[in-house]
Each structure stands twice: as C-alpha cells, then as structure tokens.
Design a protein around this nucleic acid. Sequence first.
DNA 1: CTCGATATTTCATGTTGTCAAGCAACGCGT
DNA 2: ACGCGTTGCTTGACAACATGAAATATCGAG
Lengths: 142, 142
Amino acid sequence: MAPRTDALTREVVDLIATVVARYHEEYEEAAAKHALTGAQAKVLALLARESLPMRRIAQLLKCEPSNVTGIVDRLEARGLVERRPDPDDRRIKLAAATPAGLDTAGRLSESLDFAREPLAALSAEERGVLRDLLRRMLEPGA
Amino acid sequence: MAPRTDALTREVVDLIATVVARYHEEYEEAAAKHALTGAQAKVLALLARESLPMRRIAQLLKCEPSNVTGIVDRLEARGLVERRPDPDDRRIKLAAATPAGLDTAGRLSESLDFAREPLAALSAEERGVLRDLLRRMLEPGA
DNA sequence: CTCGATATTTCATGTTGTCAAGCAACGCGT
DNA sequence: ACGCGTTGCTTGACAACATGAAATATCGAG
C-alpha cells in the first residue's frame, strides 16, 4: 500500500478537493441564477433528457423516494415539471419537464457549460490525457 | 471560444462531474462512520488545525455566520468543540477542538485518506501528470 | 463619549434529508 | 378468481443546513 504521507498523492488529493469545491460553487451559483436550488437543478436536468419515475430519480440522486416527492412538488408548483401516469403501471408516476421546464433546463445547461469551460482551458491533447487519467481513476477498483 | 459541442471537452466535464459525485459520497460516508454530518466533519477538520473565530469559519464554508452557530452548537453538545473567548477582542468567540474532537478528527482524516487513495491508484508518474494538469486547470483564469 | 462598524446569537422560514406508516396497484400461486 | 407479498408513491414527524432580519455586546475612531 502506498504510504499515506506520500507528498505527491497528498497534493493530488488536495487539488481534487479544490476542483470539487469549485465545481460545487459554480453549480449552485448557476442554479441560483434561475432561482433553483442545487437539488432542483439536478432533477430538472435529468428530466430534460427523459421522463423518469419518482423511484428512478431517487436512485440517481442517491436519496430516499420520499425526498424526491418534495423536490418534484416544488418544481411542479412552479410549472417546470409535471407528473404523468405511466400507461403500463398505474402505481408509477412519471415526472416530466414541461415546455417551461425544458426552456429553463436549456438555459441552465448553457450557464453550466459556460462556467465549466474555463476549467477545460487546456489544449486538446492535454484534455485527452486528462480524460484518460480520470477514466483510469474512476475505474471500478476492487 | 471553444465550441460547446466539443465531444472531448464534454467527456472531461462529465468525468469531473463523476469525480465530484464520488468524492462527495465518500466524504459523507466517512463522516457518517463517526456519527457526523458533512458540515460537522468539515468544521471539525478545520478546527483540528487551529482555533477559529465563528466568522472565519463562515467564510471558509461560504455560508452565513448564523449558520455556523448551529453547527458549532451541535459539535459542542457532543464535547468535540468548545467556545473560548478571544483575549484580544471580547466580541470574538474562538471555536476550538477539544481533545475528544482532535481524536475524532484524526480518525476521520484517516478514513478520508483511506477512501480517497483508491482514486489515486495511478503510477507516480501519472499522478505527477495529473497534478500538473489539475494545477493548470485551477490557475486563476481571467 | 458617541456613533458607526463588527462579531455573534436568536428567530422565523424554507429546502433537503431520513425513517416509519399508509395506500394503491401489481402479479404470482393456488 | 382470490389472497398476499411486493412495489411505487405519498404523508407525517423530525433533524440538519441554509438564509435573512433583528437584537446584543464590543470595538474603535472622531
């Protein structure tokens, strides 16, 4: 096992911590620009791609389904999302973005791209190297 | 400006999002192992290094001072932190880790190192490259 | 000493999160 | 067809986190 006191490893961990912190700041900031909280922005972004059952949203957010109820409630109250029945299973409620929700999600996505692009201010080749390293880092380690 | 539709950039951004998500999971998990929330763990880690005025904690956490009051209250109720007067300014209350707090912070730090080390399962050379790329990414871009 | 600024707390309020309990709908086995 | 365990969602009670406004105490400059 690599020693925990390895200066290089420690520095990489610190840098990652910084990336994480900055990413979060920018995400929350971009969401706030559209009067959304971070959680609401995440759900809206998910639903902009496809309608999802409540339970599936909970899985993706790694939280309890009962929590999703509240988040979708608030999005629905603002007309950004609606609940629709699943034709194949009447237990399921599909949360779907409304046209207004799609519009907001689109502008949100632009804000995010805009905010994150400075992070990728590396040459194409460097971005490729970074991609490979990140991929390897995230590989399912035993 | 680089086009937003650049596939490589998009993939790197996605990978970073994944790193961020995983980092958070592991952080919360490690905190929970010591019956702490994420916010409590952050504050305790800060105070393990040095005592800090409430206001300074708020700055580091990027939140309102009134929020810090509650977090420190809960840590204090568990004997991990105590409030001490600042000898030079009686308005200021210095939050400081107790011996029990230092102990918990130490074990927490080990959990975190342990959890994050798999992320750095790259060769020393690769970690060096990663460090350089992350540094450049985080450089103060205009 | 007075007055504006600073540090902290308290209160009201809202969002996120958990857990347990409840209800409706599904589907399997008989 | 019936019963029954399972699944999907909501509700309720509760805790933590977060903000903003107002109250209190102290500081420091004029």
